[in-house]
Design a binder for these strands. Structure first.
Lengths: 328, 328
DNA sequence: CTGAAAGCGCTTACAG
DNA sequence: CTGAAAGCGCTTACAG
């Protein structure tokens, strides 16, 4: 008896058929104004709420979007979660949240999503195997990689223009007089870190300047430890380009501990422009990822694919911009 | 046709009835080992996935927990979200994530949850009206307020021992020689902020020491602005007790900007013990909220109520502990 | 242990 | 525009 009252009850009270009740609530069907009023009044009186399960069962479409997320500790992602939730809610969709510990999501991570016959799936901060993606293709479930992409364009992905961004960051630092630069990478099996590295070094090489790469992991601790390691060697580069903001904070804190002046002795540029980047203590120069636009683009694709599945792939890039603050 | 293959297909291939297929997958029923094997083999071959909607429709129970969250910008909450997701997943439950902008959640926030006939609802960082809670009661949906409670115990709530915590914090600061203290509150319509205030001042008063309260909003900016305001008055208290960590960082940054030494001139104590509290730049003394235990307690209640609804109310408090770091 | 059948609450051709 | 009926994919008494 679901939550007590069903369409039949409403129909009885309104003196119409169950079909009419359904037509009023499902929309798109023709109902006389008189019937509509009777039904709505009866529904109001009884506190009728259509059962979404029954609806999904018969339409074979759910109004649930699966959102798979790994890096919840990076404030960038909660923000993304929030924006997706708000955007989809307006469209009548709910978010089924899945947390994964895996860089490449596993069958077990998405099993539930298939059980619920989700309308679409968004994966952030993680990749997935072609193998697993077959399941989605088979069931015609649209899929978007958010802030990740895959070499061969087997998926639809939405990112910021990482390559161009890191090129601009390099140009900017060089113009500021930096000659000796370090890139601190995120997880090197993520497309975002690799692209940022590529664009950055491309320009640095073009200018025939020395550079070095240190591998880290997108975490505060990673940025902090890596910087201490570098300083231990007695080496102070003229600039750090760091693969995300949260690592940059670790870098800045390590520099502060060694009383190295920023931006006097070293300049630091991050990536993401999370809220904390504007905190006075950090005041970090960084690349703004336009989350809202990236979300909008994702939602638009999703909706189109839900409407009519094509399985279209491709990498969409949304232009971000350099936010200049006090670390450069 | 859901995701292509249903129980009937499996039954046909396995040479058994659909009922048997159901018995194998739903569990709790007696099936011969031979039948089970035949069914599992057929299911494997066809890639059968039971349709959760049909299941929920007939059992009138969903395996979905609604999680309503407001303060996603405070890193405490993403952590809570993650732990709930992991804990419930182990039990076969999925998380339907709802974001609200309201201090007191609204009908529209939870409408979807009723549509999906959720097995239970957890509300974090927000309150709800008695009015709205009637809906949950009516549908016998168990409800937990997480990290919030309501005066008259109309709900089941899980918190840390805020009152005792803030008393201990006061004792600790007094013992450290602080004589003139300030409490920076969070939103004053939240039980957590009020309890922390109450316990703290209770002890301070007992010692007949002067104190002052400044109202803020649980945000970094709030802590920062409030502290600047206080300093502008030319006043430097001997300690700040701040209603949460993220505000404490604002406090510390404002103090740093004014070159006020911590803990030399002023001591600062936060609340939550989020990851950032241990960052070397902050190294904040704070009260650890035992998230995992709070989550476990919530899950346990939920499960019991799902099993057999009683609508039991009450406030459960989980002991946290003082984490002493460099700001005291 | 197993199968045939009813039924969960809906949507949607089909007639009228 | 409207109603009667079929059916979505399951679970679960009911018989055997």
């Amino acid at each position: 008896m679901s939550n007590g009252v069903n369409a039949k009850d409403v129909a009885r009270l309104a003196g119409v058929s169950q079909s009419s009740v359904s037509r009023v609530f499902f929309g798109g069907a023709s109902v006389s104004e008189k019937t509509r009023q009777k039904v709505l009044a009866a529904a109001e009186e009884l506190g009728y709420i259509p059962n979404e399960f029954a609806r999904s069962l018969i339409t074979n479409k759910s109004k649930i979007i699966g959102l798979v997320m790994k890096g919840i500790k990076n404030p960038f992602y909660p923000q993304v979660l929030k924006e997706f939730t708000v955007a989809f809610k307006k469209l009548g969709y709910s978010i089924l949240f899945v947390h994964t510990n895996h860089d490449e999501i596993q069958k077990e991570d998405v099993k539930m999503l298939l059980h619920y016959n989700v309308a679409g799936v968004i994966i952030t901060d993680a990749a997935l195997s072609l193998n697993l993606s077959e399941d989605f293709k088979k069931f015609k479930i649209p899929l978007v990689l958010f802030n990740r992409k895959v070499e061969k364009q087997e998926f639809f992905s939405v990112c910021t223009n990482n390559l161009e961004a890191s090129r601009q960051i390099a140009e900017f630092l060089i113009q500021k007089g930096c000659t000796d630069m370090v890139y601190i990478s995120g997880d090197r099996n993520t497309s975002t870190s690799l692209e940022r590295e590529k664009g950055f070094f491309e320009v640095v090489e073009k200018h025939q300047l020395p550079y070095e790469r240190y591998d880290s992991d997108y975490s505060y601790q990673g940025g902090y430890d890596t910087t201490r390691l570098i300083l231990k060697k007695g080496r102070i580069p003229s600039a750090f380009f760091v693969a995300n903001d949260i690592m940059s904070f670790g870098v800045l804190d390590a520099l502060r501990e060694h009383s190295i002046e920023v931006p006097g002795q070293v300049k630091v540029v991050g990536f993401d422009n999370i809220d904390m980047a504007s905190w006075p203590i950090y005041n970090l120069t960084t690349w703004e990822q336009p989350i809202s636009e990236m979300v909008d683009e994702t939602v638009e694709y999703m909706l189109a694919e839900i409407e009519e599945y094509t399985g279209a792939t491709g990498n969409v890039e949304i232009r971000g911009k350099l936010i200049k603050r006090k670390t450069t």
